[in-house]
């Protein structure tokens, strides 16, 4: 097993962020950690990496206890921090060179590796530039290049593509796919379903430090296809209409969001008609109705009652 977490407990002061958290990751996987702000994604990664203190539980990587075999394990682990972690006064080349040298490569071997990494990140032409002279997307790519200098067997990527344009994001996603093809297990956190769907073969949906769903993208979609999320844009929303919809057969949850009403209904209950009827009877106009059954964002909404991003 590549990662084995057994009943982790992690707290900040007296605030427990992860409680009784267990997780197993196998060879070849790209695991997506999906969750809103504060779900505990970063905390989870830091705890596995030993950056954050664990109050209870056990962490094993490559079937070895992390505390006992720290140096040996860390040799084969990479980490892309959520914030860009570069030495600002050093140029692109030196940043990669530093981490490459630390991984133990020397001389020509190191020089080749540095070139390979910079070409992989498509930054070879910009090797003389300082990080601050790079675009956000380039910085993110450099951030990744520095993390894989030791050719890790396990790579943690904490929102590696956050805040970049779609083109850069696609480049980064391609990088992740290539990294995985070379045999590296990747743990990838994000707020974005599309990213996770594009690169991960397993999704873990997290909220408030708990695993809410765990499976392949398909399994998760199947899980919620049992439910159907209906989103109505209404001219007005009042208590009565919410109550009446809640009372309908087949409706499991109603949520108000500005002038939208999100209604979760059981699959096959066909209660859409009755919902629309209730709305009309209350003298409210419907501007728009959308039903979405196939994407992970809705799945997330269904499972947690929360939106992924504010």
């Amino acid at each position: 097993m590549v990662i084995n977490l057994d009943k982790l407990k992690v707290s900040y002061g007296d605030k427990t962020v992860l409680n009784n958290y267990s997780l197993q990751v196998e060879k070849g996987e790209v695991v997506g950690l999906l969750g809103p702000n504060g779900a505990g994604k970063t905390t989870l990664m830091n705890s596995i990496l030993g950056i954050k203190k664990i109050s209870e539980g056990k962490v094993e990587i490559f079937d070895k206890d992390v505390k006992k075999h720290e140096k040996e394990i860390k040799k084969d682990v990479g980490y892309v921090p959520q914030e860009i972690a570069l030495i600002e006064e050093l140029n692109v080349y030196d940043n990669v060179a530093f981490f490459t040298k630390l991984s133990g490569l020397r001389g020509k071997e190191a020089a080749d590796k540095i070139k390979e990494l910079l070409e992989f990140a498509e930054l070879w032409d910009r090797r003389k530039a300082l990080p601050k002279e790079l675009s956000g997307g380039m910085q993110r790519r450099l951030n990744i290049a520095c993390s894989i200098a030791n050719h890790p067997k396990l790579l943690f990527m904490d929102e590696p593509a956050v805040g970049v344009d779609p083109q850069s994001r696609n480049k980064i996603l391609d990088m992740v796919k290539t990294i995985n093809k070379q045999g590296t297990v990747v743990v990838y956190s994000s707020h974005y379903m599309e990213e996770i769907e594009a690169v991960c073969n397993r999704v873990i949906i997290m909220d408030e430090g708990k695993i809410i769903a765990d499976g392949s993208c398909e399994q998760i979609k199947d899980l919620i296809i049992k439910e159907l999320a209906v989103r109505l844009e209404l001219s007005e929303i009042n208590e009565t209409v919410i109550e009446e919809i809640e009372k309908l057969d087949g409706v499991s949850k109603v949520e108000e969001e500005e002038n939208y009403l999100n209604v979760i209904t059981e699959k096959g209950s066909n209660c859409l008609e009755s919902i629309v009827k209730v709305v009309f009877e209350n003298g409210i106009s419907i501007y728009n109705i959308s039903c979405d059954r196939s994407n992970l964002e809705t799945a997330f909404l269904t499972l947690t009652g929360k939106k992924l991003r504010e």
Binding site: I51, K74, G78, Q82, A85, F99, N150
Partner: peptide, 17 residues
């Protein structure tokens, strides 16, 4: 700046002593 910052996380997660 280096050690408690993000570069520090990189260093702490590396196998450097």
């Amino acid at each position: 700046a280096i050690f408690s910052g993000s570069v520090g996380k990189r260093i702490k997660s590396s196998n450097m002593r």
